[in-house]
Design a binder for these strands. Structure first.
Length: 420
DNA sequence: TCTGGGGTCCTAGGGCGA
DNA sequence: TCTGTCGCCCTAGGACCC
């Protein structure tokens, strides 16, 4: 039996842990630059604020209903997520952490007598220890567990946040209830295609011939069909290192000069190589890109992308920044207004398997020692104590975040004080 | 005026060597 | 030596997820 645990309105719930006065009030969390809505409380959903909505389009509704706004505080959310996952692992060792707010558990080999009661106790435990409300769906496959979770969330009063699909009858009811757009793995495009062919519910989807599904929705579509029928096609996965690492940002004020762009890109490289070193990997290919504002219909959109193949594997920001800056100087189009830029590190290998090439300007032994020292200093005295000269070490620079909450659990100066 | 960020997987199609 | 076929590799693009 597989369970899917999902934290309810996760980012909003994280903010509410330290602001219990906001329970019952409409709350939203915004994306970087306070641009779009990325999390909503139930009350905000009821007001009709959609996911991904640009804030400026809903300004009136937000003000009229006193909706509480937060800028994203990923330090806080990451830390709370870690606590939730830690507790879940304690109770269910066979776990796949799927995202910041979701995890699959396999309880087949745990001696669980009553799955529903087990779910309720897990829910109670997480809320008691971390203060995060969760919903749980149990079923024989991942896709069905996702569907069960949806039911648990949608009918909280009846289910108390836990729903188990443990017989054919329940499975049939769920397939009849579930719309195709709500099936895990079927997005906007496939929904359009299915609707056009008269398929609206999961029960109709599973009746489609295999050949049709494979031809129109690839092998993944076929796996979804069998999972809905209760035949396991997707296993719980171990944590595997990332195959690519990227850092990108939109800019509140568009960038028009190469100096500033170089500054930002250098910061992206520093952040990305930090992630790379954390998972003990090296990269040999860097993709750097930037583009103008696609929403500005008055100007022709410009997109530039450069792929840089290194002659060696590295996780050293100085080496990468040097190469990227050289390319930037050569390719930069003067006069364009850059709205977003980013870098992707790819072609990753594990540090262990690295064999330095015979001819390269990079001095490997020295670089390893240097990076180790820098990481130790930054870990002891704070992120960016030592950083690339190209940026000033201010990672929040020029990013709009007017509603940022304190880092209650990760910053000594933000810890809540209690008067006794 | 203002519209996020970070990933994965699959497939088609072209280049290229055996 | 030329030509056709097959399979592998790579890339771009499109789908999906949170």
């Amino acid at each position: 039996m597989i369970g899917l645990i999902d934290c309810n309105n996760f980012y909003v719930s994280c903010e509410r842990i330290f602001r219990p006065d906001l329970i019952g009030k409409p709350v939203i969390v915004l994306s970087n630059n306070d641009g779009c809505v990325i999390a909503r409380s139930e009350e905000a959903k009821e007001l009709g604020i959609p996911m991904g909505a640009p804030v400026f389009q809903y300004k009136e509704l937000i003000e009229k209903n006193n909706v509480i706004i937060f800028s994203p505080n990923f330090n806080l959310y990451g830390d709370i997520s870690w606590r939730v996952m830690y507790l879940l692992t304690e109770k269910c060792p066979n776990i796949e952490i799927y995202s910041i707010d979701e995890a699959f558990i396999d309880i087949t080999h745990q001696n669980v007598k009553n799955i529903y009661e087990f779910g309720l106790s897990l829910k109670k435990y997480i809320y008691k220890c971390v203060g995060i409300p969760i919903s749980i769906g149990f079923a024989s496959t991942k896709v069905l567990a996702k569907a069960a979770n949806k039911i648990a969330k949608k009918f909280t009063q009846k289910t108390k946040g836990v729903y188990v699909i443990d017989n054919e009858w329940k499975k049939k009811i769920v397939l009849r209830y579930l719309s195709v757009e709500d099936i895990w793995g079927i997005g906007k495009k496939y929904t359009e295609l299915l609707n056009k062919n008269g398929i609206f519910k999961a029960i109709d989807f599973v009746k489609l011939p295999d050949e049709w599904i494979k031809k129109n929705m690839t092998i993944n579509g076929l796996k979804i069909k069998y999972e809905l029928l209760g035949i396991k096609c997707l296993e719980l996965e171990d944590e595997i290192p990332k195959k690519s690492i990227s850092v990108s940002r939109s800019f509140h004020n568009e960038i028009t000069n190469i100096k500033e762009l170089k500054e930002r890109i250098s910061l992206f490289i520093e952040l990305a190589t930090q992630k790379l070193r954390n998972q003990k990997s090296l990269c040999s290919t860097i993709i750097m890109y930037y583009h103008t504002n696609y929403f500005n219909k008055r100007e022709k959109p410009i997109y530039q992308q450069v792929t840089i193949f290194l002659d060696t594997y590295t996780n050293c920001p100085h080496y990468i920044a040097k190469k990227v800056n050289k390319i930037l100087e050569k390719n930069f189009i003067n006069g364009i207004k850059i709205k977003k830029a980013g870098i992707i590190l790819t072609n990753l290998i594990s540090q262990e398997y690295n064999i330095p090439p015979l001819f390269t300007e990079l001095k490997h032994e020295e670089q390893i020692k240097l990076m180790k020292t820098i990481d130790e200093i930054n870990s002891k005295y704070g992120r960016f104590t030592i950083h690339l000269a190209a940026h000033n070490g201010n990672i929040r620079h020029k990013t709009l975040c007017e509603h940022l909450s304190p880092c209650y659990t990760t910053n000594w100066s933000d810890i809540i004080r209690v008067k006794v």
